[in-house]
Design a binder for these strands. Structure first.
Length: 505
RNA sequence: GCGCCCGUAGCUCAGGGGACAGAGCGGCGGACUUCUAAUCCGCGGGUCGGAGGUUCGAAUCCUCCCGGGCGCACCA
């Protein structure tokens, strides 16, 4: 792993000198060197020595490390390291050797992980709210796979129960030429479902699956609520329950929940939470080490009760991970667009994709932290699609692909033949950030770091490209290697986001 | 009332203990005999919601307050 992460290797070398873990960061200012660490400031306290004194002592020893051109003590006691060109060349060689696996396999102990995503009931087409769930959940799944875990994507849906009865009744009403029930479903899609005979639910589900595939989300397994409900008695026997007020309760408050939850109503019917219990038990029985739920902010109350269920089933509560994303607010022409499925004025995923495209849609939905609500003016997103930064990044990839096509026959060589220019050094250093970016994005379940980082990569590449000729220059071999490394890094980022890396634009 | 999330540039948002706070869009002004100008370069733009606290050092951590979003079912 460290063999393909030059930064981690350098950090390990400096750590060996300092005696405590060292993290290198990239200073915002060029005069602060290539990499900086505050380790001397941290050590000063425990050594009861002035920080700059500690720094000076460490600097002398770090300066003799392989690849270090200079070490400066700055400010209150920062150590600013400058690496030499040969080190950067070696690092670039490591990127090229790793190829599409650069930054991958960071998981110490690979797990079997299930990511449950979208799980919208098939009572209508997917909306943009589900699109955020899907884009986010799928990106997290891709990150986990990239880290080396075995990941399965699952979609859970209701195929029986009151809402589905109402949905079927709404379709039936349309077939009879009547208005759907007052509290039923009303979209134009009902007419299409009514045109064909039989149960509309499987066809609605097929349409949803097709929309997800178009959105580049492949669901491995679909789980039906009716199948899960059949296992409710077994699940209730496996957890702590008691009777009170004529109902059966699960003792979730003993496991971190605010209160206990009813699992069987006083009329004898099980609650939705009873199905949750059966479902989570079934998931564990299928052999997953970790269960990831991707849920909207309106479900944040589930976190405690699902963890409680895991504990009651004898699993560590950390084995259930509930990822909460904030809601998507859509506006159209300044007016808030309604998101209820029972109204006709919703924005469906397919329409959204028609307007702004799959790449821009995925990029846009992933660009914000999942803890942040998103506001999208649908008209604006469509109108300004050319200005979406996704094209800026894709263009970098296409540009490189073009150069490499034209360079056919010419051999890349990551060893610098001459002193590297500023733009070349900056670009190499940028590429080397990928493993840390990916590790952190994975650990924090925050794929929004990827678009932010890939913009910086594209930025550094476009600047390099503008200032330096690749083909026919004296530095052609090195620059071709730099182009190849950049293409790899951009392609890895785009793939983790589910965005295409085009060869031409 | 209780719980979760969020207040950073005109707008949409990054940054989640370090050195003068960033990007995109929008505004203004420049650059193509060129491997792709979907590019590059420059200018302007900020009480990081407010007040305390911890720290050598706070947009970042803690407390309180203000403002916004979302939840607090024997619904699904």
């Amino acid at each position: 792993m460290e063999g393909s992460d030059p930064i981690a290797a350098l950090e390990a070398a400096v750590t060996a000198v300092a005696g405590v873990p060292v993290e290198l960061e990239r200073p915002s200012e060029a005069r602060h060197g290539d990499y900086a660490t505050n380790v001397a400031l941290r050590l000063a306290g425990e050594r009861r020595q002035p920080p700059r004194e500690v720094a000076a002592e460490l600097a002398a020893r770090i300066a003799s490390l392989d690849g270090i051109a200079a070490v400066d003590v700055a400010g209150p006691g920062f150590l600013n390291l400058t690496v030499d060109d040969a080190w950067l060349g070696g690092a670039l060689a490591a990127v090229l050797r790793a190829g599409g696996g650069f930054g991958a396999r960071s998981a110490g102990a690979p797990e079997r992980i299930q990511v449950e995503l979208v799980s919208a009931n098939p009572t209508g087409p997917l909306t943009v709210a589900s699109a955020r769930n899907g884009a986010y959940g799928d990106a997290v799944a891709r990150l986990l796979e990239f880290a080396g875990h075995e990941v399965e994507r699952e979609y859970y849906y209701n195929d029986a129960g009151a809402q589905m009865d109402l949905f079927r009744a709404s379709v039936e009403a349309v077939r009879r030429g009547e208005e759907p029930p007052e509290d039923g479903y009303h979209g134009a899609y009902l007419a299409e479902l009514a045109d064909e005979p039989g149960d509309p639910v499987p066809r609605m589900l097929a349409r949803i699956e097709a929309a997800l595939e178009r959105f580049r989300i492949h669901v491995d397994t679909f789980e039906r609520q009716s199948a899960v409900e059949a296992e409710i008695p077994d699940a209730l026997a496996a957890i702590e329950t008691y009777e009170a007020d004529g109902a059966v309760w699960a003792a979730t408050s003993a496991h971190g929940d605010d209160r206990d939850r009813v699992v069987v109503r006083s009329d004898g019917t099980p609650t939705y939470f009873a199905a949750d219990a059966a479902y989570i038990r079934r998931k564990f029985a299928r052999g997953f080490d970790r269960l990831v739920y991707v849920l909207g902010a309106d479900h944040h109350g589930y976190v405690a009760r699902l963890a409680a269920l895991a504990e009651m089933l004898g699993k560590p509560r950390e084995a259930v991970e509930v990822l909460i994303y904030q809601l998507v607010h859509l506006t159209r022409g300044g007016e808030a667009a309604k998101m209820s499925k029972r109204r006709g004025d919703v924005v469906f995923l397919d329409d959204f994709l028609d307007e702004i495209g799959v790449d821009a849609a995925r990029w846009y939905l992933l660009s914000r932290g999942h803890d942040q609500t998103i506001e999208i003016d649908v008209d604006l997103a469509a109108e300004r699609s050319q200005k979406n930064p996704v094209y800026y990044v894709q263009y970098a990839h296409a540009r490189i692909a073009g150069v490499l096509r034209n360079a056919a026959g010419s051999r890349p060589d990551p060893a610098p033949g001459a002193a590297l220019a500023t733009e070349e050094r900056e670009l190499v250093k940028r590429l080397l950030e990928l493993p840390a970016i990916v590790r952190e994005a994975t650990a924090r379940r925050g794929p929004h770091a990827l678009p932010a980082y890939s913009i910086r990569v594209a930025d550094d590449f476009h600047r390099f490209y503008h200032h330096h000729r690749v083909l026919g220059s004296e530095a052609e071999a090195f620059r071709l290697a730099l182009c190849a490394g950049t293409r790899t890094v951009v392609a890895v980022c785009l793939d983790l986001m589910g965005v295409e890396a085009p060869e031409r634009m």
